[in-house]
Every structure is written in structure tokens, then in C-alpha cells.
């Protein structure tokens, strides 16, 4: 369970990232966070695994008070939370399996870490994760030779191998074409349902958010302006979330909305 209690985040330059956020996400929920660029979607996500520190309020993740974590505790805490990025952030010039196994590095003994030698159990766990996202046959291919969709699934497998309770996904499909984006979203949905992993996902495409998530959280200028089940989302609510910015293009349809929609056809 993730619980934000009156959380605020103010950046050193005075920019307000989050303002009095109250939010509670139960284990196994699939939540899509929508809003304009710069509204605080990324900030919200990055506070959960303490990639960003919060300025005030209280944030608890699975009973752990995140603000009080230090040094080694942060690293151990993070290893239970998977994270997916828009630009995949894979290690180039390394095999698919090599990328997936990096997730297990913190658990290895010092000499294995030095030499980069993984035990067979780790390799099997890695291959299992690759099988789970359907790219087992690419295990020994170098990641730079894969397509964008395949690379994002490598990143997904990389988080799965750490056996996370929560996956944070920051614009996971923004760099993908619409067809590939749907395939990756299908993977998220399946993982969410089969493995009971909570998924928090930032997304530009309102139509994808509505199609896949159980719950939608709308953010505007650091504040939560909507929080409810997907079925409750109406055009008025979306206009409210994206208020004043290109609202004319939204009216009448649930098409991709944000100011910087990336659709590589």
C-alpha cells in the first residue's frame, strides 16, 4: 500500500512540484496518472521510491516511512520497487539477459559483483522474466539490435526479475508507435492481474489510460484534481485536468491529449 498524507514537494528553485497531495493506493491496483507536462506526474512517481525527497507531509510505502530512510536502507527499499522509463535506460552493447540481471546485482557476493559472474539461479530467474514478457528467444541478443517495443519489454523484465511489489512507469509508451504501445500496455495489464503487482503509470495518452487502468488520477499544477475509477471519467473531467491548455483539441473525443503527444507511426 502506498499512502501520501498531505505531501508537498518544493524544488530548490522554488518550483512547486506537489501541493498537499493525499492519495492511497492499495496493493494490486493499476493507476494511471494523467496531466500536462510539468504538472507533477513525474515528481509524484519519483517520490514513491525516494528518487526525489518530499518537502513536507508523510509518505508510507508498505508500512515503511519513506522520509526516514537513509543510505543502505534506501537502496534495499528501492530494489523492491521496479521502475520503467520513457527512454528505456538500458545498458547499450550488452545482451538482453545481461541487462535483466543487473537488477539482481545488489544481492550478489562481492567477487561476483566485481567479475560480473551470475549464478545459475539468477540466470534462470532472468530467463523466466524474459519468457514472461515474451522475448525469451532474444536472451543473448545485444539490446541495441532490438526494436523500441522489445527494448521496453527488456526493461519490464528487468524490473520483474527483482520480484517487485510495485512498478512505477514514467511515460513508458511515449517513445513507441501506437501499435507497439498497446502491446506494452497489454504486458502491464497482464502483469498487474497475474502477479498482483501495483502499477503506477504516467501517461500522455488519455485513451490508453482509460482503456487499461482501473483508476485515474488527474494532476494539475502539483495538485490532485481528480481521483476515481476509470468508469467515472468524463470529458468534463478531462477538460478540467487539462484546463486552459489546448482544450479545444480535446473536446468531443478521448484522443491523445497532452501538449507533447509523441506518436511515431
Amino acid at each position: 500500500m502506498i499512502k501520501f498524507e498531505n505531501v508537498s514537494k518544493i524544488y530548490p528553485n522554488g518550483h512547486v512540484g506537489l501541493k498537499n497531495v493525499d492519495l492511497q493506493i492499495e496493493q494490486g491496483e493499476f493507476v494511471a496518472i494523467i496531466g500536462l507536462s510539468g504538472a507533477g506526474k513525474s515528481t509524484l512517481l519519483r517520490c514513491v521510491n525516494k528518487m526525489h525527497d518530499i518537502s513536507s507531509g508523510k509518505l508510507t510505502v508498505n508500512g515503511v516511512n519513506v522520509t526516514q530512510l537513509k543510505g543502505k536502507e534506501i537502496r534495499r527499499f528501492r530494489s523492491k520497487i521496479g521502475m520503467i522509463f520513457q527512454s528505456f535506460n538500458l545498458i547499450t552493447r550488452t545482451t538482453v539477459l545481461g541487462n535483466v540481471l543487473v537488477s539482481l546485482v545488489p544481492e550478489l557476493s562481492w567477487w561476483r559483483r566485481l567479475l560480473g559472474v551470475y549464478p545459475a539461479t539468477a540466470k534462470i530467474a532472468g530467463l523466466k522474466a524474459l519468457d514472461n514478457v515474451g522475448i525469451l528467444d532474444k536472451a543473448y541478443t545485444r539490446v541495441d539490435q532490438l526494436s523500441g517495443g522489445q527494448q521496453q519489454r527488456v526493461a519490464l523484465a528487468r524490473t520483474l526479475v527483482g520480484d517487485p511489489d510495485i512498478i512505477l512507469a514514467d511515460e513508458p509508451v511515449a517513445a513507441l508507435d501506437p501499435v507497439t504501445a498497446k502491446i506494452v500496455m497489454d504486458d502491464f495489464q497482464r502483469i498487474n492481474r497475474e502477479m498482483n503487482i501495483s502499477i503506477l503509470l504516467n501517461i500522455h495518452h488519455v485513451d490508453l489510460a482509460v482503456a487499461y487502468a482501473d483508476r485515474i488520477v488527474g494532476i494539475r499544477q502539483g495538485e490532485i484534481v481528480f481521483d476515481g475509477p476509470t468508469s467515472a471519467v468524463t470529458q468534463e473531467i478531462i477538460d478540467e485536468i487539462y484546463q486552459g491548455h489546448g482544450s479545444s483539441s480535446i473536446k468531443g473525443s478521448l484522443e491523445p491529449v497532452a501538449a507533447e503527444v509523441v506518436v511515431d507511426a
Binding site: I124, L136, A139
Partner: peptide, 13 residues
């Protein structure tokens, strides 16, 4: 070769 729990076999490179 590595055998996955679900029975799939992967030849290790």
C-alpha cells in the same frame, strides 16, 4: 542448458 521452471530449455551462450 538452463531449464526454466515451466519446462522451457534455453541453451546458454
Amino acid at each position: 542448458t538452463l531449464t526454466l521452471p515451466n519446462g522451457k530449455v534455453v541453451t546458454e551462450q
